[in-house]
């Protein structure tokens, strides 16, 4: 087991964004994490990557409890993430973004090129990040996450806001990444994309894990249907 989330809770004041979440991630899989807006998906990512400290619970990565470690240390352990609202070094070119991101892990210049090729940003290398389109920014998120040579990759809505054809393009990149042995957790609230790439899906609702299993099982689950569509749709 690569990552084990054990009874993790996170409270903001009186609001519980996560409540006793248990989740195990196997090495090499692509796990989908879904749920309606505000379900706590991004909060869980922030807890795993050290941006938030869980109120209680354990997060064990390769048999090390990583709760309390700062983000940069967790990154160095091999957990990479993307940001839901795309971020980047806006005053720098695409190439410099990836080059600088590669410095910490000591990747060579040829690795930078390979990453740019993998996500399909080769031709945009001299463009300032501030003037990229949305899909290009999403690709940059992926590329930057790859520079740390992650064992585990956390993708926070990398396909939201994209046209179906663009989403397919990203989906292809993710599956290429996974084939290279990188374990992936994808947060999405679009079921369609999740169904196509994940063999296993976990569902969060109001900070509680309400279901887990294959996409088909999860889609039939009463609580999931209720969370997504409301009481009256439950058969």
């Amino acid at each position: 087991m690569l990552l084990s989330i054990q009874k993790v809770s996170k409270a903001f004041g009186g609001l519980w964004a996560l409540r006793n979440v248990d989740l195990d991630v196997e090495e090499g899989e692509v796990l989908g994490l879904i749920g309606p807006n505000g379900a706590g998906k991004t909060t869980l990512f922030n807890c795993i990557t050290g941006y938030y400290r869980p109120t209680s619970g354990k997060i064990v990565f390769q048999s090390v409890d990583i709760v309390g470690l700062p983000p940069y240390k967790i990154s160095r352990l091999g957990i990479a993430r993307t940001f839901q609202l795309t971020k980047g070094f806006n005053n720098l070119t695409v190439f410099d973004n990836i080059r600088i991101a590669s410095l910490v892990s000591g990747a060579a210049l040829k690795d930078v090129w390979e990453i740019l090729r993998l996500v399909g940003l080769e031709e945009k290398k001299d463009v300032y990040v501030g003037s990229l389109t949305l899909i290009e920014r999403k690709k940059l998120e992926l590329a930057r996450a790859l520079t740390i040579r992650p064992k585990l990759l956390l993708l926070d809505e990398v396909m939201s806001g994209l046209k179906p054809s663009e989403a397919d393009e990203i989906l292809k990149v993710i599956s290429d990444i996974n084939k290279k042995g990188v374990t992936v957790i994808i947060v999405e609230h679009v079921m369609r994309t999740i169904m196509r790439i994940c063999k296993r899906v976990a569902v969060l609702d109001y900070g509680v894990k309400i279901a887990e299993g294959s996409p088909e099982e999860v889609m039939r689950d009463e609580r999931v249907i209720k969370a997504y569509l409301g009481e009256e749709f439950v058969a």
Partner: peptide
């Protein structure tokens, strides 16, 4: 420069 541009991103790639 990475820190100036975005601290969260800088941390995510392992910069202290």
């Amino acid at each position: 420069i990475a820190i100036r541009e975005d601290e969260d991103v800088a941390a995510s790639i392992g910069i202290n």
